[in-house]
């Protein structure tokens, strides 16, 4: 019985077989990757280059009849000298730092606890991951009710703990509280995601290492710092990378909760960018803004991935 390769070769029409026989391995490889490269060029690279081109013009989508003028780096200059841009970046940094810190701390702790064998372990895991399965729009909507000063459960919970009047504070309406309101909701929603990644990391640690440590009479504390944390660190860093990228472009949840307010207190860069692009229709300006954000995220992510690889190689 002929092997499968011989059968395929026999079934190939002679004309096609002749054509293929004339192609080098390199050409065949290019033929296979060409559709993917074409898609990447069409969907990623072309829009990026087009955005860069637009960023150097005064083009406005809502003014098709206006002449498009080349303005050089004027849009970039305007953005970088605009105090509103820096206020948005500051709000984004505050949001990013606190959500990642809280999600890593709580997520890792939950993963550490869930990793222990106990009854109803699976049930708890399912319950904990429920928030991340909801749509951000839905989450934003029902948290606006939870934060409602007159009927919101969150305000009543805080009032129960502190004795304050629940109607005396508005989580999404006060400058001092609104940034924390969005951090709380994002942490509630996405900590389970960090927990799952950490759990994968913890479960990848071979039990034999802990057994060896037990033989050496290492304390639980020592085992945590010298085995658990270092071996789970690449996973933890991966979770930070994912959440960092996601939260840098956070939009839906915050729009639903605060609309960027009060004032511009929670106007993150993505909201600011959307307003420039699709409310003010300053397409050229918004393109430059998008390029700046892209370079920022790309640069930070590249540095971070290098650090991640170093940790993995250790």
């Amino acid at each position: 019985m002929p092997d499968p390769f011989q059968r395929v070769a026999a079934a190939t029409p002679p004309k096609l077989a002749h054509q293929i026989r004339g192609l080098s391995d390199r050409t065949i490889a290019w033929l296979f990757v060409a559709p993917t490269i074409f898609l990447l060029l069409a969907v990623n690279i072309f829009p990026l280059l087009w955005t860069i081109r637009l960023s150097l013009t005064n083009f406005r989508t809502n003014r098709p009849n206006n002449a498009v003028e080349w303005v050089g780096i004027e849009n970039y200059r305007k953005i970088l000298t605009n105090p509103d841009t820096w206020a948005s970046l500051q709000a984004t940094a505050h949001f990013l730092i606190w959500t990642i810190t809280l999600q890593v701390l709580i997520g890792f702790t939950l993963a550490y606890l869930i990793n222990k064998k106990f009854r109803s372990n699976d049930l708890w895991t399912t319950l904990i991951v429920l928030p991340m399965m909801l749509s951000p729009a839905v989450v934003g909507n029902f948290w606006t009710f939870l934060y409602q000063p007159q009927i919101g459960l969150f305000n009543y919970f805080i009032a129960f703990l502190t004795g304050a009047d629940p109607a005396s504070f508005s989580m999404i309406g006060e400058v001092a509280l609104a940034p924390w309101a969005i951090i709380i909701v994002d942490t509630w929603m996405w900590t389970p995601f960090v927990m799952l990644i950490c759990l994968a990391g913890l479960r990848s640690i071979p039990p034999s290492i802990y057994e060896a440590a037990e033989c050496d009479r290492a304390s639980k504390w020592r085992q945590f710092w010298t085995i658990t944390l270092p071996m789970a660190l690449p996973f933890l860093m991966l979770a930070v990378l994912f959440r960092g990228i996601e939260n840098f472009k956070m939009f839906d949840l915050v729009v639903q909760l605060t609309g960027g307010g009060p004032g511009a207190t929670t106007q993150l860069t993505s909201i600011d960018l959307k307003r420039e692009a699709f409310e003010k229709w300053r397409t050229g300006y918004a393109s430059a803004y998008a390029v700046i954000l892209f370079v920022t995220v790309f640069g930070l992510a590249s540095i971070y991935v290098k650090a991640l690889n170093k940790v993995k190689d250790r």
Partner: peptide, 23 residues
């Protein structure tokens, strides 16, 4: 005006910032 949306976003920002945020 044709630039109404930009004009509106400016007033939204300044009014909300003063009236609600108290800045």
């Amino acid at each position: 005006e044709p630039s109404y949306a930009t004009l509106m976003q400016s007033s939204q920002k300044w009014f909300h910032d003063y009236v609600v945020a108290g800045n």
